[in-house]
Design a protein around this nucleic acid. Structure first.
Length: 221
DNA sequence: CGCGGGCCGTTTCAGGATAA
DNA sequence: TTATCCTGAAACGGCCCGCG
């Protein structure tokens, strides 16, 4: 069963969002919070929430502060932002901070349901008229994220980029295939990319730092 | 056309080794 | 001691392909 957490201080919006969610998932379990504090409280006892829908303006949060507090405590919780703010810069910032989607409040119930479906399936949902970021910014953030990878993850990514499949990567690095799979998952998470092919394409656009040879754990670098 | 099997990719969980 | 990294097993879903 799919569980949603709706964080909004306006009862009417909560109800509307709930209806949109049920349109896509009739048997969804829907939890409601009126503030970040209440959301955090709910999250302490509810470990399996599939998607949080967050209003940016709450009694105890302005701008992205509430989103960041959620993210800090529950980094793996997918959070889609629901807001009446449709400024492209705001949308942009939301996505760069790691929001799973951005749903303008002007969206119809039907579109909202479709967006929720997209987010749950792992892609990012953005307003229809949203224009993707220019390459420069993307490249910078991607390079920054690349630096978060561990050496082993960098090696796996390098082979991924060259078109190796998991089994081949495992053979090349002398690992079990399952280990490679785990690395791939972590790589995609760190790079905030949502499919292996996407990662290969995106990484192909920039230069990957050459993976270092494996050596002893004592690194005098 | 629908169904089942196999392959692939993703995710989660758990355990050991090591660094702080 | 706690946190991080690496590793592996297992379950799940999507896709394709052969079969009836």
């Amino acid at each position: 069963m799919t569980t949603f957490l709706i964080i909004d201080d306006h009862p009417l919006f909560r109800e509307a969002l709930g209806n949109a969610v049920r349109l896509a998932h009739p048997d969804a379990r829907i939890l409601e919070a009126m503030s970040i504090a209440e959301a955090l409280h709910i999250l302490t006892s509810e470990e399996s929430i599939d998607l949080a829908l967050l209003d940016l303006s709450l009694p105890d949060a302005a701008g992205f502060s509430g989103f960041l507090r959620l993210r800090e405590t529950y980094p793996r919780l997918p959070v889609a932002i629901v807001s009446s703010e449709e400024d492209q810069n705001v949308v942009h910032e939301a996505l760069s901070l790691g929001a799973a989607g951005y749903l303008p409040k002007s969206t119809s119930k039907r579109e909202l349901a479709a967006s929720i479906g997209r987010v749950l399936s792992g892609s990012i949902s953005v307003p229809r008229d949203f224009i993707a970021a220019p390459n420069a910014g993307d490249k910078k953030t991607l390079e920054a994220r690349l630096r978060e990878l561990t050496p082993q993850q960098t090696r796996v990514l390098d082979l991924m980029r060259r078109g190796f499949q998991n089994k081949q990567i495992a053979l090349e690095l002398q690992l079990a295939e399952s280990t490679v799979k785990a690395h791939v998952t972590e790589i995609l998470r760190k790079l905030r990319l949502y499919s292996r092919n996407k990662a290969v394409i995106e990484i192909g656009k920039i230069d990957l730092p050459a993976p270092r040879q494996r050596q002893s754990r004592i690194d005098h670098g």
